[in-house]
Nucleic acid binder design. Structure first.
Length: 319
DNA sequence: CCCTGTTTAGGGCGGT
DNA sequence: ACCGCCCTAAACAGGG
């Protein structure tokens, strides 16, 4: 409980996890992607709590960016000076917070190096795949990487390399909704809003493609602290110390642009997508239907690598 | 050197 | 109790 006299809520730890905060920042940006420093800035601007102990929370935040598959790294274009890459939300990281809690997700978003799937039919796909080419072979051989804690062996599973950025399965399976998609925000009512109810809308939305402003307003009502513009956009900004008081805001500023002018950086996400070693029960199914792919994508590399959980838990198979 | 990223490790906590 | 998610610490590599 905040002490009456002093900085009541302002200095309190916001009820959001780093994943939420980061997603908020990204979601709020015009391009739907931000360099690390801007993510920091966004958070510090709006949550006084995070103006302290920066070393600590920023380390945690970076950890989250790397560790969670729901965040993807997008390299800068040569003509875009600056350090580091841009961070964006994975198009398919659906319902992370469908339980309404932004402190704890119901389930993690996991990407498996399944990438292929004939899903490239989606217009969105070439945002990610320049040359979708990927030999159907995929992980067949997989780069070893057993989960044996064999000391130095850790280098085995390396495989940086992009090209693959595994995991973008198409949304056609029908179930996907990204964390801050209107579907998740307005709950069941979204069906009435989404004409076709297709997830593509969400994808476009967070990739910065033009999206009906109404949708944006929903986002705003959901994230009162977010304010309408990130500082990087140089817009009016919400009083940094805004408590958790909701405020109305026209969604106008959010997606105002997105057309030609400022192209997103090279559409070439590069999540190393670990060659999740040979997942025995899985390898045989590789060529399976996208649904399987989708389901599988729910696994998180950490879980797999650490041997937590079961790759093919029944619950994951039914889409 | 500092910033950015990746990775490992361990503790806390809530849900089942 | 166990599992899954979150937080923090810390080592370390690479780049500007």
């Amino acid at each position: 409980m905040p002490r009456p006299g002093k900085n009541s809520y302002s200095d309190q730890k916001p009820p959001y996890s780093y994943i939420s905060l980061t997603a908020m920042a990204i979601q709020n940006s015009s391009e739907k992607m931000l360099p690390l420093s801007d993510i920091y800035k966004f958070i510090m601007d709006r949550f006084p709590y995070y103006r302290e102990n920066t070393q600590r929370w920023q380390n945690s935040l970076r950890h989250n960016l790397s560790f969670n598959d729901c965040f993807i790294k997008i390299p800068r274009r040569p003509d875009q000076p600056g350090k580091g890459s841009f961070w964006a939300l994975h198009p398919e990281c659906g319902d992370m917070f469908e339980n309404g809690s932004f402190l704890r997700r119901r389930k993690r978003f996991k990407v498996l190096r399944a990438e292929q799937m004939a899903c490239k039919s989606s217009p969105m796909m070439h945002y990610f795949h320049h040359h979708h080419h990927h030999p159907g072979s995929k992980l067949g051989t997989s780069s070893g990487h057993h989960e044996h804690p064999a000391g130095p062996a850790s280098t085995v599973g390396r495989i940086p390399h992009f090209q693959g950025y595994g995991g973008i399965t198409c949304a056609q399976s029908g179930g996907f909704k990204h964390p801050f998609a209107i579907e998740n925000i307005i709950g069941r009512d979204y069906k009435g809003v989404m004409a076709s109810g297709l997830p593509l809308t969400s994808v476009m939305h967070h990739l910065g493609y033009p999206v009906p402003p109404q949708l944006s307003s929903v986002v705003n009502s959901m994230w009162p602290h977010v304010g309408m513009l990130s500082e990087s956009m140089g817009g009016v900004h919400v009083p940094a110390s805004s408590e958790y008081a909701p405020f109305s805001v026209s969604a106008k500023g959010l997606y105002h642009n997105a057309n030609g002018q400022t192209l997103p950086a090279v559409p070439l996400p590069i999540k190393p997508t670990p060659s999740l070693g040979p997942i025995p029960s899985l390898t045989g199914l590789q060529s399976g239907p996208s649904q399987l792919c989708s389901a599988v994508s729910l696994m998180e590399k950490s879980d797999l690598l650490e041997g937590k959980g079961h790759p093919l838990h029944p619950a994951l198979l039914l889409s």
